[in-house]
Protein backbone atom coordinates (compact mmCIF):
# COMPACT_ATOMS: atom_id res chain seq x y z
CA UNK A 1 0.00 0.00 0.00
CA UNK A 2 1.48 3.35 -1.08
CA UNK A 3 0.95 6.24 1.31
CA UNK A 4 1.58 9.80 0.09
CA UNK A 5 1.07 13.34 1.36
CA UNK A 6 -1.01 15.75 -0.66
CA UNK A 7 -0.38 19.47 -0.15
CA UNK A 8 -2.42 22.36 -1.54
CA UNK A 9 -1.95 26.12 -1.78
CA UNK A 10 -2.77 29.27 -3.69
CA UNK A 11 -6.50 28.54 -3.35
CA UNK A 12 -6.38 24.91 -4.56
CA UNK A 13 -7.17 23.84 -1.00
CA UNK A 14 -10.65 25.36 -1.39
CA UNK A 15 -11.45 22.64 -3.94
CA UNK A 16 -10.20 19.91 -1.59
CA UNK A 17 -12.11 20.25 1.64
CA UNK A 18 -10.14 23.35 2.72
CA UNK A 19 -7.20 21.31 3.90
CA UNK A 20 -3.67 22.36 3.01
CA UNK A 21 -2.09 19.02 3.80
CA UNK A 22 -3.34 15.47 4.15
CA UNK A 23 -2.06 11.92 3.96
CA UNK A 24 -3.78 9.42 1.71
CA UNK A 25 -3.43 5.73 0.98
CA UNK A 26 -3.54 4.99 -2.70
CA UNK A 27 -5.55 2.13 -4.19
CA UNK A 28 -3.42 -0.37 -6.12
CA UNK A 29 -4.47 0.91 -9.52
CA UNK A 30 -3.04 4.39 -8.85
CA UNK A 31 0.62 4.08 -9.82
CA UNK A 32 1.62 7.30 -11.57
CA UNK A 33 0.73 11.03 -11.60
CA UNK A 34 -1.80 10.55 -14.38
CA UNK A 35 -3.67 7.99 -12.26
CA UNK A 36 -3.38 10.22 -9.20
CA UNK A 37 -4.94 13.22 -10.91
CA UNK A 38 -7.84 11.09 -12.19
CA UNK A 39 -8.26 9.55 -8.72
CA UNK A 40 -8.26 12.94 -7.05
CA UNK A 41 -10.80 14.28 -9.51
CA UNK A 42 -13.18 11.37 -8.94
CA UNK A 43 -12.69 10.83 -5.21
CA UNK A 44 -11.29 13.87 -3.46
CA UNK A 45 -12.37 16.91 -5.45
CA UNK A 46 -15.39 18.56 -3.91
CA UNK A 47 -16.50 20.87 -6.69
CA UNK A 48 -15.74 22.56 -9.99
CA UNK A 49 -13.53 19.96 -11.73
CA UNK A 50 -12.73 22.57 -14.41
CA UNK A 51 -10.70 24.43 -11.82
CA UNK A 52 -8.49 21.37 -11.35
CA UNK A 53 -8.27 19.34 -14.54
CA UNK A 54 -8.19 19.96 -18.28
CA UNK A 55 -7.68 17.17 -20.82
CA UNK A 56 -6.50 14.50 -18.34
CA UNK A 57 -3.86 16.72 -16.73
CA UNK A 58 -4.03 19.68 -14.35
CA UNK A 59 -5.32 22.93 -15.82
CA UNK A 60 -2.87 25.69 -16.76
CA UNK A 61 -1.89 27.86 -13.78
CA UNK A 62 -1.31 25.06 -11.28
CA UNK A 63 2.23 24.49 -10.01
CA UNK A 64 2.71 20.75 -9.45
CA UNK A 65 5.57 19.67 -7.19
CA UNK A 66 6.88 16.19 -6.56
CA UNK A 67 8.86 16.27 -3.31
CA UNK A 68 9.31 20.03 -3.69
CA UNK A 69 10.57 19.76 -7.26
CA UNK A 70 8.83 20.97 -10.44
CA UNK A 71 7.07 17.85 -11.78
CA UNK A 72 8.32 18.70 -15.26
CA UNK A 73 11.80 17.62 -14.10
CA UNK A 74 10.42 14.45 -12.50
CA UNK A 75 8.61 13.04 -15.50
CA UNK A 76 5.29 14.86 -15.39
CA UNK A 77 2.26 12.52 -15.78
CA UNK A 78 4.51 9.45 -16.06
CA UNK A 79 6.15 9.84 -12.64
CA UNK A 80 5.81 6.60 -10.65
CA UNK A 81 4.50 7.33 -7.16
CA UNK A 82 6.50 6.03 -4.22
CA UNK A 83 5.69 5.51 -0.58
CA UNK A 84 6.26 8.75 1.38
CA UNK A 85 6.09 11.09 -1.64
CA UNK A 86 4.80 14.61 -1.11
CA UNK A 87 2.74 15.83 -4.06
CA UNK A 88 1.85 19.52 -4.05
CA UNK A 89 -0.71 21.46 -6.08
CA UNK A 90 -0.42 25.25 -5.83
CA UNK A 91 -2.31 27.71 -7.97
CA UNK A 92 -0.21 30.54 -9.41
CA UNK A 93 -1.10 33.78 -7.64
CA UNK A 94 -1.93 37.04 -9.38
CA UNK A 95 -2.25 39.87 -6.90
CA UNK A 96 -0.15 42.50 -5.29
Amino acid sequence: MVKITLAFGGGMEILFNNTKEREIELPDNVVNMKDLIAYMKDNLLQERPELFVLNDTVRPGIIVLINNCDWEIEGNLEYQLENGDEITFISTLHGG
Binding site: G11, G61, G95
Partner: peptide, 25 residues
Protein backbone atom coordinates in the same frame (compact mmCIF):
# COMPACT_ATOMS: atom_id res chain seq x y z
CA UNK B 1 8.99 28.53 -19.67
CA UNK B 2 7.18 27.71 -16.43
CA UNK B 3 3.73 28.90 -17.46
CA UNK B 4 3.39 28.43 -21.23
CA UNK B 5 -0.41 28.65 -21.08
CA UNK B 6 -2.23 31.28 -18.97
CA UNK B 7 -4.77 30.02 -16.44
CA UNK B 8 -8.47 30.15 -17.30
CA UNK B 9 -9.79 33.61 -16.41
CA UNK B 10 -12.26 32.29 -13.84
CA UNK B 11 -9.52 30.48 -11.91
CA UNK B 12 -7.75 33.74 -11.06
CA UNK B 13 -8.29 35.30 -7.65
CA UNK B 14 -8.00 39.05 -7.07
CA UNK B 15 -7.13 41.11 -4.01
CA UNK B 16 -10.42 43.02 -4.13
CA UNK B 17 -12.40 39.75 -4.18
CA UNK B 18 -10.32 37.21 -2.23
CA UNK B 19 -8.59 39.64 0.10
CA UNK B 20 -4.96 39.99 1.06
CA UNK B 21 -3.28 40.45 4.43
CA UNK B 22 -1.33 43.72 4.19
CA UNK B 23 2.00 42.45 5.40
CA UNK B 24 2.15 39.55 2.93
CA UNK B 25 2.73 41.55 -0.30
Amino acid sequence: CLNPVPPPAEAIGKCNVNGVLGVVP
